[in-house]
Amino acid sequence: MKSAPHQRLVMVGDRDALKELLRLRLVECGWRDQVKIICKDLIKENGQDIAYDTLLSTVTSRARSLVPDSVKKELLQKIKNHLMAQEESLKS
């Protein structure tokens, strides 16, 4: 049951749109650039043969906390709104 909200949003296409919104916001606020810099630094240290997993784990530990609150707030609100909207549309 816990996966139901996720699955419902996937089904109606909302999840893709929400993901795109989050992505835009993270580009706009410069977070993506921060991630790029972290990656580039890591590559400079470890060479270009670096594996994806290494990059990802480093970024996760360093950059995840840098996401601005406003972005998080906006997305939480929108997700909630969409869940409610789906509830409405199923009930009617």
């Binding site: 996720h6 999840r15 993901k19 970024v59 997700i79």
Partner: peptide, 20 residues
């Protein structure tokens, strides 16, 4: 909502790292 947000963030982050 919170969980979905975290999932989305993970995925977007993965995407940025994939780009690099």
């Amino acid at each position: 909502s919170k969980e979905i947000y975290e999932d989305l963030l993970d995925e977007v982050m993965m995407g940025f790292v994939f780009d690099v």
